[in-house]
C-alpha cells in the first residue's frame, strides 16, 4: 500500500474544511448560519481554553467568567453607551476580559490542580453574584438586550443579516485559529507542553513555570473574551447565567479531545447536539452532566483523540 505523506493529508483536510466553512451560508438556511456561527464562537472559546487545559495541563472550572465579561462588555457598549461600532466593542471586550485574566490568573497559577480549579470556579461565581448585586446596571436576572452592531456602515444584526454576521464571525475564527497555530508551534508553545508533561523538570531547565502558566492563562482569557464578544449580538441578549456555563467549554474540549483541532470539532458537535437535544427535552443539564461523566470514564481522549489512536493503529498494522 502506497503511503500518502501525512502533510498532504493535512493540507487536503485544511482546504476542504475551509471551503466548507466558506460556502455554508450559500447552501443553508438562516438557522444554519446562526447555528454554525454559534459553533464558531464556541470553537474560539474552546481553542483558548485548550491552551490552558490541553497544552499547559491546567484545568479551569471558571472560564465562563471571561466569556461573560466579554459578552457583557459588548452589550454595555452597544446598548448602554450606544456606540454601535462592533470593532470598538470587540476591542473593549478583549481588553477587559484580558485584564481580568491577568489579575485573576496571577493569583490562580500559584496553586496546584485542585485549588486552581476551585479558585477559578470561585471567581466565576463571584462575577455571577456581582451581576445580581448590581442589577440596576446589569439588568439582574433579566439581563440586557444587545443592540445592533455595525461594521462601518454595514448593519450586522444577526437577525437581519445572518450571512453577514456569519462571515464576520468566520473571519475572526480564521484569525484565532491562525494565531493559535503559530503560538502552539512556537518555542513558547513547546514550553507549555513541557510544563504539562513535567512541571518540575521545566523549573530545572531555567524557566519560571509560574510565569508561563500565567501567560497561558492570559491567552486563554483573551480568546474567551473574544468569544463572548461575538456571542452577544448573535444571541441578542446577555444574562448572568453566562458566567456559570464553564461546563460547556470544558465539555466541548473534552468531546473533541485536547489536540489542536479537537476543541474546534468538539465545539461544532457540541453546539449541534445541544440545539438538537434541547429542542425536544428540558433535561439538557442532566444530559450534559451524564455526557461529561461518560466521556471521562470511557473516552478520555475525546472524539479526535480516540479517532487518531484508532487510525494510527490501523495505519501501523497495514504497513507492517
Amino acid at each position: 500500500m502506497k503511503q500518502i505523506p501525512e502533510n498532504k493529508i493535512k493540507k487536503f483536510f485544511l482546504i476542504i474544511s475551509t471551503s466548507i466553512f466558506l460556502i455554508i451560508p450559500l447552501i443553508g438556511s438562516p438557522y444554519l448560519d446562526f447555528l454554525i456561527s454559534m459553533a464558531l464562537v464556541y470553537a474560539i472559546w474552546a481553542l483558548g481554553y485548550n491552551f490552558l487545559y490541553g497544552y499547559t495541563g491546567l484545568l479551569s472550572f471558571g472560564h465562563a467568567a471571561y466569556f461573560g465579561i466579554g459578552a457583557y462588555t459588548v452589550a454595555f457598549i452597544l446598548t448602554k453607551f450606544s456606540i454601535n461600532s462592533f470593532l470598538i466593542a470587540i476591542l473593549a471586550a478583549i481588553v477587559i476580559s484580558t485584564l481580568s485574566g491577568i489579575l485573576i490568573g496571577y493569583l490562580c497559577v500559584r496553586y496546584t490542580a485542585i485549588y486552581f480549579a476551585l479558585l477559578t470556579l470561585a471567581f466565576a461565581q463571584f462575577f455571577y453574584a456581582l451581576c445580581f448585586r448590581f442589577y440596576y446596571i446589569t439588568g439582574g436576572s433579566d439581563g440586557m438586550h444587545v443592540s445592533t452592531p455595525y461594521l462601518f456602515n454595514f448593519n450586522l444584526s444577526a437577525i437581519e443579516n445572518p450571512i453577514g454576521y456569519y462571515y464576520f464571525t468566520l473571519f475572526f475564527f480564521f484569525i484565532a485559529v491562525y494565531v493559535a497555530w503559530r503560538i502552539v508551534n512556537s518555542p513558547f508553545g513547546k514550553i507549555l507542553q513541557a510544563i504539562k508533561e513535567n512541571t518540575i523538570r521545566v523549573e530545572f531547565i531555567g524557566v519560571s513555570t509560574r510565569k508561563y502558566k500565567w501567560y497561558s492563562f492570559i491567552l486563554s482569557t483573551m480568546y474567551s473574551g473574544l468569544a463572548g464578544a461575538l456571542y452577544a449580538p448573535l444571541f441578542g441578549h446577555v444574562v448572568p447565567d453566562l458566567f456559570i456555563i464553564s461546563a460547556e467549554v470544558l465539555f466541548a474540549t473534552l468531546l473533541g479531545g485536547t489536540t489542536f483541532i479537537g476543541p474546534i470539532l468538539g465545539s461544532i458537535v457540541f453546539i449541534c447536539a445541544r440545539s438538537y437535544i434541547s429542542a425536544f427535552t428540558i433535561y439538557w443539564p442532566f444530559i450534559l452532566g451524564s455526557l461529561i461523566v461518560a466521556f471521562t470514564l470511557l473516552f478520555p481522549s475525546g472524539i479526535v483523540g480516540t479517532l487518531e489512536k484508532k487510525i494510527s493503529h490501523i495505519l501501523k498494522s497495514e504497513v507492517s
Binding site: 512556537s186 507542553q193 508533561e197
Partner: peptide, 27 residues
C-alpha cells in the same frame, strides 16, 4: 525527569529554548 509525551527531539529542544532565552517567543 523527562517529558514522556514529547519526542526525544522535543525533550532536548525545550532545554535549548530555555537556554537561548527564546521561551517567550510566541509567534
Amino acid at each position: 525527569a523527562i517529558y514522556n509525551g514529547l519526542t526525544v527531539l522535543d525533550n532536548v529542544r525545550v532545554a535549548i529554548i530555555s537556554r537561548l532565552g527564546k521561551a517567550n517567543k510566541i509567534f
